[in-house]
Write a protein that binds this DNA or RNA. Structure first.
Lengths: 240, 240
DNA sequence: CGATCCATTGAGCTTGTTCAAGCAAGGTGG
DNA sequence: CCACCTTGCTTGAACAAGCTCAATGGATCG
């Protein structure tokens, strides 16, 4: 398997998209694919950071929790996202597979060497981390200051955006249909709410006609802009 | 003023600490010092990103807000912290001077060029952004899942930690005295609470003897570990 | 068909908000 | 120097958003 990167589904959207042919080859040599079953922890808070990875498929949640069971999801990651902490010896969050997850792993130290050798890689990583910082700041705002209804609407919009993030500047009043990658309990942990409150808000959004649930996971959004408005979000999709 | 960096108060703690003599000189040439009075906005959400900066003195708050007045502080920055968004054309948050602030500004594009030319600078920046990501994830957890009392205690601990972050591994049960850089209203905006709730919690912490207020800004913490426990934080200072 | 796992719904309660008043410290001007 | 504001903090009482506890409903799976 000289260069499986050539057939990688997320090759161009991921970090690796920055690299030249020759560089990809070197990266390919230190990569290792793994599959993690749904629900399994990938790493725990405090674990030694031995690897970093690109997500090839599936959804990963990053969580922090207290001994008494309170839990907060501090990051949701999707295919092509980068998972890991270069230049850090330990994980500061737990990472868990929400669905079955395929990873393209690299030994952390070797990856750090790659970063040092290939500035384009480092710049792309920096840009990604800055993006993530933006997103989590937005998230902090949502959790800190929005009502339950606004939070749930915001989460749905965010997931809808990230699910088909390819075409971004699409038309107003667009219709979106997608499967929620996460359960009600995980939605609650994202939003700093309880399951029950999330459920009630979902029901209310349904009653208002802002969303339409085929089953509890399958969401139909007839008018994304309207949901954005309910969530108190900028109506301009580019603002994210 | 050939090289004012030599006398820079935050030289070694800031990004620039990574640089060689020759590099510092080049950076020095593109730097410009400015002073911003307390309470004044440095940049607004959506502003063009024309500069980045190191904070030399003072405290900066990063905020996001809704038209109806709801506001959330999504970052507090102190001397030696880096302020700005390299590789981004616009600001995604408002930055405001909490106290009078001195900045060491660089033209964004020139700074980006420096980053590209000096990998050590880029790596140090990356490490900083990763640190900030960690901190804000911790923050999201606090705002999403902790009670008012825990939030206020956590904030006090965080500020105490950052105020005299020099000596970190100091003794248990240590005593700390410091001035709050922020008002009650800003504390509330950090924590997703109201002024009144913050005030009540401060009173309660005082009643419990966990803190001691000379005046509303001057905080005496007789036992930092105890306050950590009240805040539901790990008792190990290194865990941050 | 029961068993299990989520999700939904209801009723009452708690925490933190809202609204309103009071208080202390620091100007300002007569 | 003292009345008068202003500003920021504190405190109280009533209220409401979201939580807790409990019951019910619907899938899916052996």
């Amino acid at each position: 398997m000289a260069n499986r990167c050539e057939t990688c589904a997320v090759r161009h959207r991921s970090l690796c998209g920055a690299l030249e042919q020759k560089e990809v080859e070197r990266l390919s040599q230190i990569s290792r694919r793994t599959t993690i079953p749904a629900g399994k922890a990938i790493v725990a808070e405090g674990d030694k950071a031995v690897f970093v990875a690109n997500i090839l498929s599936g959804t990963v949640k990053l969580t922090r929790s207290l001994e008494d069971g309170r839990r907060q999801i501090v990051g949701l990651q999707f295919p092509s996202d980068f998972l890991g902490r270069p230049f850090r010896t330990h994980w500061s969050v737990q990472a868990e597979a929400v669905s079955e997850v395929e990873l393209c792993q690299f030994d952390r130290k070797q990856f750090e060497q790659m970063i040092t050798d290939f500035p384009t890689l480092e710049q792309r990583l920096l840009a990604r981390v800055l993006d993530e910082l933006d997103r989590i700041r937005e998230w902090l705002f949502i959790v800190g200051r929005k009502t339950a209804a606004e939070r749930v609407a915001s989460l749905l919009v965010m997931i809808a955006d990230r699910e088909h993030d390819a075409g971004c500047g699409s038309s107003l009043h667009e219709t979106v249909v997608f499967d929620l990658p996460i359960s009600r309990s995980e939605m609650a942990d994202c939003l700093g709410l309880t399951i029950e409150t999330v459920s009630r808000q979902m029901s209310q959004l349904t009653a208002q006609g802002a969303i339409d649930l085929r089953n509890s996971r399958s969401v139909h959004i007839p008018d994304l802009q309207r949901l954005r408005r309910i969530g108190g979000l900028a109506v301009d999709p580019a603002a994210i």
